[in-house]
Design a protein around this nucleic acid. Structure first.
Lengths: 213, 213
DNA sequence: ACCTGAACACCGTTCAAGT
DNA sequence: ACCTGAACACCGTTCAAGT
């Protein structure tokens, strides 16, 4: 299972094939069916592996000890760290059918949701505030990471190294883009993540106090 | 090309196969190679079709006439509408290699970026503010939509209709989740989109005025 | 000029057969 | 109990051959 994650990490999602995974394990592909029922389930396993990696990380997952802000900060940063460590596999988290499809946003593991709600409740969040916080937090976090990861991983399939003949693709037609080329190319994703997270925590703190009205 | 989009819309991404697309057009698969070089390029074409659909929509794409807030509102809503109309195809927008990989966030069509920057400039945005607004706006919009779309489309592959034997999967183990089941299941994605967009526009308006300091 | 059939290398998956 | 070989139905893609 962890072999599959490693495989995706360096071969890309479309590089993961039963036959290739098999031979990378020194075994014929057909043997894999002794351990998992099929490729779909293999992918589900990959997602679970990553998600559990987040759940088990001591750094990430512990009840709040320095306030809920610290709790959510750690959660957000921890999830981001692991997502960025597996850019090619992370999109699966969103594309596999979730364990709880009725959840908004849907998520794969309820274990996770439970401990999230638990953490907030222990910090004095009302039920309503905790649910609203869940919504805002997960949709920010997943949305942001799905985008950030897509600019890395970009699993194109076994597209051979593309020639660098691709000019800055007729930048001539786009004067504004050309002029701001430098600024537009800077990677601020980490700083932006920080800013948006700050902003989100502020909004959540409003939610929390609002509840008493 | 539009045939391919329609195909994905109801068969899912993994249902789109050269052979099947061919026969849905009343032609042998091999003929398709007269028109496009391969499957990868077909997918690129699908993305371009969708993106152009957004670009050409009169409702969406016009220079600001009622202020930049209205401009961005219309843009956001228009893009969302089209994304939700093609939930199975939209993720491709993020996973295909972009035309301008150096852009942060990377995007497929510079045409789009150019007119975005143009619109803001015509509303008095400085270069720096326009770039910052581009970053914040696109990463919010794409991030949010990627997540929202994934809870629809969910292209699992030709997984036959799964039996409804799937209990509310041992909800017993998660008392908190069970208790808040009702609240957690409500779909507020539209309202949340609205709220986050509001919030984003406020942040952008700060950016804009800050520039003079 | 456009389409087709046959072919090749690769999939996922099944199953009878080997040890 | 675990692995394998051969087989089936399906891919993407190429190419010589048909009209």
């Amino acid at each position: 299972m962890t072999a599959a994650v490693a495989f995706i990490d360096d071969q890309g999602l479309s590089g993961l094939t039963m036959r290739r995974l098999g031979s990378s394990l020194g075994v014929e592909a057909m043997s894999l069916y002794r351990y998992i029922p099929g490729r779909q389930e293999l992918l589900d396993g990959v997602v679970d592996t990553i998600v559990n990696q987040m759940y088990d990380d001591e750094e990430i997952h512990q009840s709040p000890q320095h306030g809920w802000q610290d709790f959510l900060q750690r959660l957000a940063h921890g999830v981001r760290r692991i997502a960025l460590a597996h850019p090619k596999a992370f999109p699966l988290v969103a594309s596999r059918p979730p364990e709880a499809p009725w959840l908004r946003p849907p998520l794969r593991n309820l274990k996770w949701v439970e401990s999230f709600l638990d953490g907030l409740a222990s910090e004095g969040f009302s039920d309503e505030a905790a649910v609203a916080a869940y919504r805002a937090f997960t949709s920010f976090l997943l949305g942001h990471l799905l985008l950030e990861v897509s600019s890395l991983g970009a699993d194109v399939g076994p597209l051979d190294v593309l020639e660098d003949d691709s000019q800055p693709s007729s930048l001539a037609d786009y004067p504004r883009v050309r002029r701001l080329h430098g600024a537009l190319a800077e990677d601020h994703s980490a700083a932006e993540f920080e800013m948006s997270l700050e902003n989100l925590l502020e909004r959540i703190s409003l939610l929390q106090t609002e509840a008493s009205s």
